[in-house]
Design a protein around this nucleic acid. Structure first.
Lengths: 208, 208
DNA sequence: GTCTATATAAGGATAGAC
DNA sequence: GTCTATCCTTATATAGAC
């Protein structure tokens, strides 16, 4: 009925189960905050078994992050790929990204840890594997929105506007002007798109 | 001749030395990534001595972060306080914040860890002690820039535009359109202020 | 593939001398 | 105020049985 029939890929599942569960843990507590014991307990194995699947903790971490981001990356790229106008695609992407931040808290958390990682090799690997495709899509969109601006900076700004809002989510609540409605992805998306739109479509902006 | 000679403020220095040095360590490696042994070694004391000054690791961390941010908070508020026009103050603040991100890498790192902290109590404490004043200043500025927008969201966006750029600094280098000049605080500040300015001053922005 | 058992290091924290 | 010495827990990783 299904692919590998009964016998061909018998235990490949364990590896993916480890990846999924450890990604959750790393998202919540970071590399140093998660022990191999924690992972083993979550999966329902002993510590030693993990070393059958992964050479060491570093490798497990790297694979887990890549595993977790892959699917989100695909979803986000889908939001950008269509033949609507650039502004419609932007609106959909921003709302979709914001929604994703709300729906899956771990997405933001894991992203956070990745950005924070001080290991250069891990970062370059993840940058390409995980963010490369998504960034390029937004980068192209940025160029469409305003060919006269630095598309790289503009793309970064788009990400920053959405992501930072949620990064600061926990402390935002203690700041003046806070309203729970701001946690609504639609409200945020509206704010951001307005901010960009009345900027980028600016008619006769003069010298600068 | 040295130390104890004066008598007035004999050993208060040690505590501050611990705070300064441990702040560096926490900035670089986070709470879990720093051991009391690490701190002790950096300061030149033994582990046990730390427990004379701080009840436990949590308290040391909390005090160290607050200690480190206090001075930056003051500097940033100064940039916002003047009687120039709002746009001039914005430009100065953005450039100043960006410069600070470049000059003191630990500032960003520590901020990062604070945002990530999963401990609610620690977060509310730090939110008020550390960011409260700075946020209010930007919040007020945001209201001046455009009284018709949600000042809270706008203030957050201003922070996000600057901060995220540097958060993503390490992976940005692997993305298309990257240029070293974008690491220049002046260039970034120009980009951000343009983005906001041609937006917020938008003349006849119609319905939305 | 997964287990038990264990080696070995590093972690937070305390007691008591000075 | 700081030290030495130590306790106890937790950590990564391996060896070898099943």
């Amino acid at each position: 009925m299904n692919s590998q029939a009964i016998k061909a890929a018998p235990k490949r599942k364990t590896r993916e189960e480890i990846l999924g569960l450890s990604a959750d843990l790393f998202a919540r507590h970071g590399y140093d905050g998660v022990s191999m014991r924690d992972v083993a307990a979550a999966v329902g194995l002993t510590q030693a078994a993990l070393y059958y699947h992964f050479s060491d903790k570093d490798q497990l971490y790297l694979d887990a992050v890549a595993y977790d981001f892959r699917e989100k990356d695909d979803a986000l790229k889908d939001m950008l790929a269509s033949n609507s106008t650039p502004w419609v695609r932007l609106e959909r992407f921003v709302a979709g990204l914001a929604q994703m931040m709300v729906t899956d808290r771990d997405f933001l958390r894991l992203l956070h840890w990745v950005l924070l990682d001080s290991d250069e090799v891990r970062q370059s690997t993840l940058a390409k594997d995980v963010f490369g495709g998504m960034f390029v899509a937004v980068y192209d969109l940025a160029h469409e929105l305003d060919p006269n601006r630095d598309a790289h900076l503009l793309a970064m700004s788009i990400f920053g506007l959405v992501i930072f809002h949620f990064q600061a989510g926990a402390i935002r609540k203690f700041m003046p002007g806070y309203s729970p409605s701001q946690d609504n992805p639609e409200v945020l998306a509206r704010h951001i798109c307005d901010l960009l739109r009345w900027s980028l479509t600016s008619p006769s902006g003069d010298a600068h």
